[in-house]
Design a protein around this nucleic acid. Structure first.
Length: 348
DNA sequence: TAACCGTGGCG
DNA sequence: TCGCCAAGGTT
């Protein structure tokens, strides 16, 4: 006798256990606004729900439509994205919004294939928007789905090598109807029950169909290739002030943190081994060191400060220190600002 | 293909 | 304290 589709039980579980999220329609309901689906999916790339939520609220308040977003200056979008990380997402967000308006009449395309031609939309996001925003039977595979499927079938091939095998199983499991709810159900299951560190199989609606659940340690799936250790880099950031309480801020277009405002700095973008000397013609204050971990290296950034007397503007803009919060600095430099503020609090 | 690209939370 | 991890995409 044929077994019932696994999706039946999962969808039933989802109808009573779906997380209520600002960008989401309740199970079984009409898909939400594709603009909101798209915006949420971009924000959620490699990002937790908790981190994305306040940004989603801010963006939808300031820019309720894709037309509004497309008409906005890039600088404003980048500043609003500050702190969320992976800043290429914000650059692509703007490019995608403009492409939707310029080439698609302001409407998101509904198919995975068309969506994937847009900036910032890859295999996962294209499928997610098609399924969740348009009800298309697209197969959505993210890290949650990978984990759930690796456990369902006790796949011992380590990631990323197991991806083709996992995708095949995901395609077989995806139902023709309610593919959007199915995808969100898989992700909710992965986020709340079949979690990475501590799966709670006793609460799982798929427990009786799961091979890993019958093993001693279901949490050991999926297997993963060993990670490389992160090198530590060192550099210096400069708090350069003029008498009018303004601070020199730069705006590099390329490289790390490209498109974001930044404090003048050097040394850390290259894998330099030695501490960097600071120029000797200014009476420097040493504020301390900021530590920050990026995706592929850790950073120790010495923060030094000095007064600039010249009227000549070095490369960059003079930003009022009282308004530094509005500069949209990425977290690395926001930490440096905090360090300087704390130093002055204690030693004014 | 593998390197590059942020950040915050959790065990 | 520290490594792992998260609704990945681009080059």
């Amino acid at each position: 006798m044929a077994e019932k589709p696994l999706s039946d039980g999962l969808l039933r579980w989802y109808r009573s256990h779906a997380r209520a999220l600002p960008w989401r329609a309740p199970p079984g309901k009409k898909p939400p606004d594709p603009y909101r689906v798209w915006l949420s999916e971009i924000m959620l790339q490699q990002t937790t729900v908790a981190a994305a939520k306040p940004y989603f609220a801010t963006f939808t308040e300031r820019w309720p439509t894709v037309e509004a977003l497309a008409a906005t200056a890039s600088e404003d979008i980048m500043a609003a994205w500050a702190g969320l990380g992976y800043y290429a997402r914000a650059r692509n967000l703007h490019a995608c919004a403009r492409a939707i308006v310029a080439d698609h009449g302001g409407q998101f395309p509904s198919t995975e294939t068309e969506l994937r031609t847009l900036p910032g939309i890859g295999a996962y996001t294209g499928a997610a928007i098609a399924a969740i925003g348009f009800g298309e039977p697209a197969t959505v595979v993210d890290a949650n789905v990978e984990r759930v499927i690796a456990r369902l079938y006790a796949i011992e091939t380590p990631l990323p090598g197991a991806r083709p095998e996992i995708r095949k199983m995901a395609e077989l499991l995806t139902p023709e109807d309610h593919a959007g709810d199915f995808a969100q159900a898989m992700m909710d299951l992965g986020a709340t029950i079949c979690s990475a560190r501590a799966p709670d199989c006793t609460r799982c609606p798929l427990q009786n169909r799961c091979r890993a659940a019958r093993t001693e340690d279901p949490g050991k799936f999926p297997f993963k290739a060993p990670k490389k250790t992160k090198p530590v880099r060192r550099g210096t950031a400069y708090w350069l002030e003029r008498d009018e309480a303004v601070l020199l801020v730069r705006h590099p277009e390329r490289g790390m943190l490209g498109g974001m405002r930044a404090l003048p700095s050097h040394g850390w973008r290259e894998p330099a081994a030695d501490p960097v000397e600071t120029p000797g013609d200014i009476d420097w204050i040493r504020y301390g060191t900021v530590r920050h971990v990026f995706t592929h290296f850790a950073l120790e950034l010495d923060v030094v400060g000095g007064h600039v007397l010249t009227d000549e503007a070095p490369e960059g803009e003079w930003w009022p220190i009282a308004m530094i919060e509005e500069a949209g600095l990425p977290t690395l430099f926001a930490k440096a600002v905090t360090l300087v503020a704390a130093y002055r609090e204690n030693d004014p």
